[in-house]
Amino acid sequence: MTAAENIGLGDLPALGDAARLKEAAVRAGVHETLFELPRGYDTSHVVRAAAGPRTGH
């Protein structure tokens, strides 16, 4: 899943609308970070699930 797809999950009709995705990223405070990555909003990421319940530390 790319960063753009992840952002678009919150507003599926905006998924293909770069301006709306950028607006959402700016509101979330992640646009600058994504913009600086080599693939920008097309950067893929992997979410790893814990093998069991998390314990608080």
Rank of each mutant, 00 (worst) to 15 (best):
G29L: 02
E32K: 08
V26A: 12
L9K: 05
E36F: 04
T33N: 09
R27D: 15
V47A: 15
A4K: 05
A28S: 14
R27Q: 13
L15N: 09
A14G: 12
K22F: 01
P53R: 10
G10D: 05
H57P: 11
T33A: 14
T43I: 05
A18F: 07
V46D: 13
R48Q: 15
A3C: 08
L9P: 03
P38K: 04
G56W: 05
R54A: 10
L15P: 08
T55S: 02
V26C: 14
V47F: 06
G40K: 00
L21R: 06
G56K: 06
G52W: 02
V26E: 15
R27H: 09
A49V: 13
G40W: 00
A24G: 10
H31P: 05
A24L: 13
R48G: 10
G40Q: 00
A18T: 15
E36T: 12
V30A: 13
R27I: 09
D17V: 06
H57Q: 11
H57W: 02
D11E: 12
T55F: 01
R48K: 08
A49F: 05
D11V: 04
A25Y: 03
A14T: 05
R39C: 03
A51D: 14
G16T: 14
G52I: 00
H57T: 14
L15R: 15
G8K: 02
G29Y: 01
N6D: 03
H45V: 10
Y41G: 00
T33E: 12
V46M: 11
V47T: 14
L21V: 08
R54I: 09
T2L: 01
L21C: 06
E5M: 05
L15A: 15
A28T: 04
G40T: 01
H31C: 10
T33G: 09
A3G: 08
L37Q: 13
A25E: 08
T2Q: 03
G10T: 06
A14N: 08
P38R: 03
L12A: 09
A3W: 04
P53E: 13
L15S: 13
D42T: 03
A3E: 08
F35M: 14
T43F: 00
D42K: 06
G16E: 13
V30L: 12
V46G: 09
T55L: 07
R27T: 09
G52E: 07
L9Q: 12
G8P: 02
D11L: 12
A24R: 13
T55H: 00
D42A: 14
H45P: 03
L21Q: 04
T55Q: 04
R54E: 06
G29F: 02
T33M: 13
E23N: 12
L37E: 04
H57V: 08
P13H: 02
